[in-house]
Amino acid sequence: MTLTNYIQAYNEAVFETDKPAALAVVNQALRDGLSPEDVVFKLVIPAVESMMERIEKDQDSNLAQHFMTAQIAADVTEKMLEKFSSPPEIIGKVVIGAASGDLHSLGKRIVSGCLKSLMVKVIDLGINVGAEQFVEAAVANDAQVIAISAMMVHTATGENGSIKVRALLKQRGLEDRIKLAVGGAPYRFDPALFRKVGADAWAPDGVTAAKVIVRLINEAKT
């Protein structure tokens, strides 16, 4: 089986939300001689990137597929990392959480799962996170991106969410160093909303959000 075949078979299984089939592909790859490093860098990461492209183009992809993409990739990566001969180099750091007053955690879980498999260090602050907490954690961890999930209109647009994080970043002169990404249902219904809450970017789903965050990490680094 070639690497392309592995990636294709893995992604078909993920798209069918069939975790056992996806894990079977990974196990077959290991049996065929791929190292844990190869599984992550040559199979999982290209597969997640390919899934990002597919989901971006396929408006009919569903939440279950996004969840499984993240869940399986994160699980496989975590298992493989334990077997790495040396710790891998991370490409950046993101502080993530649900906005103040918001108790929904699915969105950030999908984003976090994809980011971890892409070698991004994720500092997960949980749910109902205050604006100050986001900024403090980003500074303390030297993160390039703050990612805020908001599933309700008032937590997306309220004064204690992204709007306040933007104000704090500006006040502390951190806007060049730390970028702000948002996501969640309200942004899907109004794709221009992210600008009104002071964010640098948004994504319509958790998998695409990971791609957007990686882009912001690279922008913040330059």
Partner: peptide, 12 residues
């Protein structure tokens, strides 16, 4: 139980 835990039970 929260959407993410339900999604996990529902699918996996």
């Amino acid at each position: 139980m929260g959407m993410d835990k339900w999604m996990e039970l529902f699918l996996l």
